[in-house]
Design a protein around this nucleic acid. Structure first.
Length: 422
RNA sequence: CGGGGCGUAGCGCAGCCUGGUAGCGCGCCUGCUUUGGGAGCAGGAUGCCGGAGGUUCAAAUCCUCUCGCCCCGACCA
């Protein structure tokens, strides 16, 4: 895309309302804008990042046989009354009435809805197992939204649900999800831990959280350097590792995903039953698996930035490469930059060209702020000597490439040196 | 929901204590000069001082109420 025609409103100064690093950089980099407390607008760059994360999530979910569907955000109250959560959950649920004065609510999660579907559709053990997922907006009237997109009142969630005939089936789907989460979070370039957690109001028989370490995190986890043991501090108050007696270290972390073995907590009240081989009616055994794409993006920034801005992993960066012609009034510079732009694009690389009529300093500053992993700098000075430069956002190292060798040179660097390349 | 802080130009802030013509920096617009790390000069535009009520000859400033945003805590299916 052309910078001059793309809406990327970078900010020179830090807005007063932002304190968390990811919040500051998302605002300054022109990724998001705040509408109200806990409500965010994703601008072109932010939306691109979110979609790249979503794409990775979908690929890994599809790979374990999950099928994408989409459920409503607006729910009838009855289902929530049947499971009791209509009464257990207090101000955190947005409630409203429709024109017929029927009680409705905005979905905080979708167990009730998907279990209703399951109760209508599944008859026989032959219908199972199934795993369904969606990327859908969740609404929660948070007591205290905070830290930019880390804790909001409306947010996107990947939520999947598994339906099995017995515990063995649930264990298998649970394990598949665990493995998919590890793969996808690695692909996003995150440092994270899987820890045991409290099933809480979700109920059921076991749960895990996926935690990305960051000082901006709301949770604390304990880690064992010796054996890799990790747990939520809710459970482990002691400072010794229960597995190998090494001293544990406590770190703050962002909860980016959680998974629950629901068992029959929802299938029983919502009458989601199936008939087994002997014709006996049994409740479906369920699991539910959440993941927050916006939290993945924010955690990635928290874990990878410097004083100049964001340092994206290439897998989730808004673009792979940013071409920076330093002076667009210099014909040679602009022409070469433009040719490169078209060539890289044609080769399937996501590329942004800073074709604005701005001074070099502004372009450098904005490029570092936005954090695209590779910068291709086309300047009059080195061009006269026959070179362009390719610079790593992460290491700041510059490699000079002769113009006769630019294209292949860039491809070589993208493949060989990109530590995030998968 | 408890505690604290802040609302003044697009952004960052000063002015408030001690009432008296609304300011600074950046950005924005015009022109010229500049072009390898947020340019220089000259000219210009921009304010319901969050809102309502009150005190006063006079309120950004004092008083009351209210709304919004941030931070700490509680909460977080």
């Amino acid at each position: 895309m052309r910078f001059s025609r793309t809406f990327i409103p970078t900010l020179r100064e830090t807005p007063a309302e932002a304190e968390a690093i990811s919040h500051i950089l998302m605002l300054r980099g022109g990724y998001v804008r705040q509408l109200a407390s806990g409500l965010y607008i994703y601008l072109p760059l932010g939306w691109k990042v979110l979609n790249r994360i979503n794409k990775i999530i979908k690929e890994e979910m599809d790979a374990i046989g999950a099928q994408e569907i989409s459920m409503p955000v607006l729910h009838p109250a009855e289902l929530w009354q049947e499971t009791g959560r209509w009464f257990e959950i207090k101000e955190e649920m947005f409630r409203l009435k429709d024109r017929g004065n029927r009680d409705m609510c905005l979905g905080m999660t979708h167990e009730e809805i998907i279990t209703w579907l399951a109760s209508k559709e599944f008859r026989s053990y032959r219908d199972l197992p199934q795993v369904w997922y969606q990327l859908q907006t969740k609404m929660r009237d948070e007591a205290r939204p905070k830290s930019g997109v880390l804790r909001t009142r409306e947010f996107l969630m990947k939520d999947s649900y598994s339906f099995d005939r017995d515990d063995a089936g649930l264990e298998e789907n649970y394990k598949k999800h665990t493995e998919a989460y590890h793969r996808l979070l690695q692909r996003c370039g995150l440092k994270f831990y899987q820890v045991e957690s409290d099933p809480g109001m979700m109920g059921g028989r076991g749960a895990h959280e996926f935690m990305a370490t960051s000082p901006a995190g709301e949770d604390r986890i304990v880690l064992c350097a010796q054996c890799g043991y990790a747990a939520n501090t809710e459970f482990e108050k002691g400072i010794e590792c229960p597995k190998c007696n090494t001293t544990l270290r406590v770190e703050r972390a962002i909860e980016i995903g959680n998974i629950f073995k629901l068992g029959t907590k929802y299938s029983v009240p919502l009458k989601a039953f199936y008939l087994d081989e002997s014709g006996k009616e049994k409740p479906i055994v369920m699991g539910s698996y959440g993941l927050g794409p916006a939290r993945i993006a924010a955690a990635a920034i928290e874990q990878s930035h410097d004083k100049d801005g964001i340092i994206w992993a290439r897998s989730i960066a808004p673009f792979d490469v940013e071409i920076i012609p330093l002076n667009i009034e210099d014909r040679d510079v602009l022409n070469l930059a433009d040719t490169l732009y078209k060539d890289l694009k044609a080769a399937g690389i996501e590329v942004l060209i800073d074709d604005r009529d701005e001074r070099p300093g502004i372009k450098f500053k904005d490029a570092d702020l936005i954090g695209i992993p590779w910068q291709v700098i086309v300047g009059g000075r080195s061009l006269k000597e026959g070179f362009v430069e390719i610079k790593s956002r992460k290491t700041k190292q510059i490699e000079r490439l002769h113009i006769s060798d630019i294209k292949t040179g860039i491809f070589r660097i993208l493949v060989e040196k990109d530590i995030f390349n998968h």
